[in-house]
């Protein structure tokens, strides 16, 4: 599979091609870990926190989900309206049932999203996310993927990214700025 981020070939992409689209302009249709269909319009009026990952990832993804769980605990009930979603970049292996098993280890407000490969690709393009399959010996494979956590205001405007190696103390204030 080709890196989805390579879909633009110009040297200097405009800012609008680098920043995630507003949620309301996104066009993907995915399925959550409870088998419910989810579209961007379902998130209208809610602050949103999204990151991309996959359940076969033993390091970056559980670490991010652990961090997010701690941030949500810090925020308490203030974060109850926040939509928190892990979008799988490995829909071939991450079925809704697999995602349900996975997210059950973390804060119950985190949902898992998966779907047909082309819908996942659409979501990645909307969020300006890159992912790439890396084949290993013995038929196994792993995925390289954008590791940041994306934040959006309740009106759908992109707010900020929490980088993977960013000082975690800055995360909660960043999230808080999207909650009001």
């Amino acid at each position: 599979m080709l890196g989805v981020g390579a879909y633009r070939t110009r040297n200097r992409p405009a800012l609008s091609e680098v920043l995630p689209l507003p949620i309301g302009e996104m066009s993907w249709a995915l399925t959550d870990h409870r088998d419910q269909s989810v579209r961007p319009t379902d998130w209208a009026g809610h602050p949103v926190m999204v990151f991309f990952g996959f359940t076969w990832c033993p390091d970056v993804c559980p670490t991010t989900l652990s961090d997010i769980s701690l941030w949500l605990e810090d925020l308490g009930a203030d974060a109850n309206r926040l939509i928190v979603a892990l979008i799988s970049v490995d829909p071939e292996r991450d079925t809704p049932a697999v995602l349900a098993d996975y997210v059950s280890s973390f804060d119950p407000r985190i949902i898992g999203l998966t779907g047909p490969a082309d819908e996942v690709a659409k979501a990645a393009a909307d969020f300006r996310v890159t992912y790439r399959r890396v084949d290993k010996d013995g038929g196994d494979y792993t995925m390289d993927h954008t590791a940041g956590v994306f934040l959006f205001h309740p009106d759908g405007r992109f707010a900020s990214i929490i980088d993977f190696h960013e000082d975690r103390r800055f995360a909660v204030p960043k999230i808080r700025r999207t909650l009001s």
């Binding site: 390091d59 970056v60 890159t130 890396v134 792993t142 390289d144 993927h145 954008t146 590791a147 940041g148 990214i161 980088d163 993977f164 190696h165």
Partner: peptide, 12 residues
């Protein structure tokens, strides 16, 4: 393995 994040993209 080493997790490396380059240009925002994580690989191992």
């Amino acid at each position: 393995h080493e997790t490396v994040v380059q240009d925002g993209i994580a690989s191992m």
